[in-house]
Simulated scan of single mutants.
Amino acid sequence: MVSYIGIQPNEVSISDNRLYISGFYGVKWPLDEITKVELVDTIPNIQVRTNGFA
């Protein structure tokens, strides 16, 4: 079951003045707390992983 959830694509949406990111470790952020958004070509290298699927 966990592996099935882990391979599902995450979804990003905005509703009720919040940014929602779905997934196993999904999050909700109030839009008024977001101060900067960047589009980057690569993601940062992961230095330490204490928990997670992949």
Rank of each mutant, 00 (worst) to 15 (best):
N51Y: 04
R49C: 08
I34Q: 06
I7H: 04
E38S: 12
Y20M: 12
Y4C: 03
V40G: 09
F53I: 12
I7M: 07
A54Y: 09
P30K: 15
Y25T: 14
L19T: 06
I21G: 06
S13C: 09
Y25E: 05
D41Q: 15
T42G: 10
E33S: 11
P9Y: 01
E11M: 10
V2H: 04
V40Q: 10
I21Q: 06
I43E: 08
I7C: 03
E11Q: 07
I7G: 11
S13H: 02
V2D: 07
A54P: 00
S3G: 01
K36D: 13
Q8M: 03
I34V: 12
R18W: 04
F24T: 13
V48A: 07
P44L: 07
Q47H: 12
D16E: 14
S3C: 07
E33A: 03
N51H: 09
N45D: 13
F24R: 00
K28Y: 03
N10T: 06
D32P: 00
F53R: 00
K28M: 07
G52E: 09
T35V: 13
R18A: 11
P44S: 10
K36N: 05
N51Q: 09
G23M: 04
T42N: 13
I5E: 05
L19P: 00
L19K: 00
V2A: 12
